[in-house]
Simulated scan of single mutants.
Amino acid sequence: MSFARPVAALLVVVALAGIAGCAASEPVVTPVVRDVGDLQGTTVELEVGQVLDIDTGDLAVDSYSGVVSDPSVATFTPGREEDGATFSPGVEALAEGSTEVVLSNEDGGIQDVTFTVEVSD
């Protein structure tokens, strides 16, 4: 019986080391959050894989559409509401480079928002 306890302890240590090793190898890339009203004429710096999360304030998250000039550098994802969760519109950085983004709102009278996304490795 004394053999079972050290083996069990060893298995726990090996399992924890494996979990810690997995977590350490995957860096966490936090999103950049900006209010849509603050984006006009600005440059947003992102790293490859990072996302710009656009806060639409009082306007519906699904009321914005976006066009990215160079879709090889970044892509626009529209906002949506799904299963009680709200997902803001965003821009995901795909590759190093610079591109212009134009956001439009389907509600009449709202000016387009134009800004630049610069992506680095």
Rank of each mutant, 00 (worst) to 15 (best):
F3R: 10
A4D: 15
A4G: 04
R5T: 13
R5W: 13
P6Y: 06
P6R: 02
P6M: 03
V7H: 08
V7Y: 08
A8H: 09
A8L: 11
A8Q: 15
L10W: 13
L11Y: 03
V12S: 09
V13E: 05
V14G: 03
A15P: 06
A15V: 13
A15E: 06
L16G: 15
L16R: 06
I19R: 06
I19S: 11
I19M: 11
A20E: 08
A20M: 09
G21N: 09
G21F: 10
C22Q: 13
A23H: 12
A24S: 14
S25Q: 12
P27I: 08
V28E: 11
T30A: 15
P31D: 14
P31H: 08
P31G: 10
V32L: 05
R34W: 07
D38A: 14
Q40T: 05
G41P: 04
T43I: 13
V44T: 11
V44A: 05
L46V: 00
E47R: 13
V48C: 01
V48G: 00
G49A: 06
G49K: 04
V51A: 06
L52Y: 00
L52E: 00
D53K: 08
D53Y: 11
D53N: 14
I54C: 08
D55H: 13
G57F: 02
A60W: 07
V61K: 02
V61M: 02
S65T: 12
G66T: 04
V67Y: 07
V68H: 09
S69Y: 04
V73E: 04
T75M: 10
T75S: 12
F76K: 06
F76R: 07
T77P: 01
T77G: 12
T77Q: 10
T77A: 14
P78G: 10
P78L: 02
G79E: 06
G79C: 07
R80I: 02
E81N: 11
E81S: 13
D83L: 14
D83M: 12
A85H: 13
A85S: 12
T86R: 10
F87E: 02
S88F: 15
P89H: 07
G90I: 05
V91M: 01
L94R: 12
A95L: 05
A95F: 08
G97V: 00
G97A: 01
S98M: 08
S98N: 10
T99P: 00
V101G: 04
V101L: 05
V102P: 00
L103W: 01
L103I: 01
S104R: 11
N105M: 07
G108T: 13
G109E: 08
G109Y: 04
I110P: 01
I110E: 11
Q111P: 01
D112W: 07
V113R: 05
V113N: 03
T114A: 09
F115G: 03
F115M: 01
F115C: 02
T116M: 10
V117P: 05
V117N: 02
S120Q: 07
S120L: 01
